[in-house]
Amino acid sequence: MSLLRCPYCQSNDISVIESPRHLPSTQTSTSQTASLMSPAALAALGVSVSKTLNIPPIAGALAGVVIGGIWMLLVDDEPQSQPRPHIVYRTEYYCNDCDRSFSPNMRN
């Protein structure tokens, strides 16, 4: 005889259900760094810096593109691992008599 009872019909005919929930892992810091160090972003930065230093803007743009291209080559050489989702199992109970499910917190 099971000590667990259904809170709806008080039956002892209970089954345990474990359902996996996939929680995505977040890796926003690497994607933000990649977008900040892209050749286009560094070219725009180079243009604005060269204007303040009274250097032709094309020189700043070229320097930014070259630095951004080198950065992208260095970052692309690092091994890229796929982020694995975090799996959490949620436990529920199912009453075989009244066909209702309930959480462990609801049990009597």
Rank of each mutant, 00 (worst) to 15 (best):
N108H: 15
A41E: 03
R84C: 07
P56F: 08
I70N: 03
C95G: 05
A44W: 00
M72P: 01
M106E: 13
A43Y: 00
S35N: 12
L74R: 12
C95D: 02
D99L: 13
V49T: 06
A61Q: 03
I67D: 01
P20L: 04
N96M: 13
A43M: 04
Y94P: 07
F102A: 09
A40R: 06
L73H: 12
L42R: 09
I14Y: 02
D76K: 12
I67M: 06
I58Y: 03
P83V: 00
A43P: 02
G46R: 02
V88E: 15
S101G: 15
G68F: 00
Q80V: 12
S101R: 14
S81G: 09
I17C: 07
R84G: 04
N54R: 14
P79V: 10
S48Q: 09
I87W: 04
R90N: 04
N108M: 12
S48H: 05
T52N: 09
V65I: 15
S48C: 05
T91K: 14
S48T: 08
N96P: 07
K51I: 06
E92V: 11
S38W: 07
I14D: 09
G64D: 00
S35K: 13
R84D: 11
V65M: 06
L36N: 02
L23Y: 12
L53F: 10
K51F: 05
D99F: 10
G64K: 00
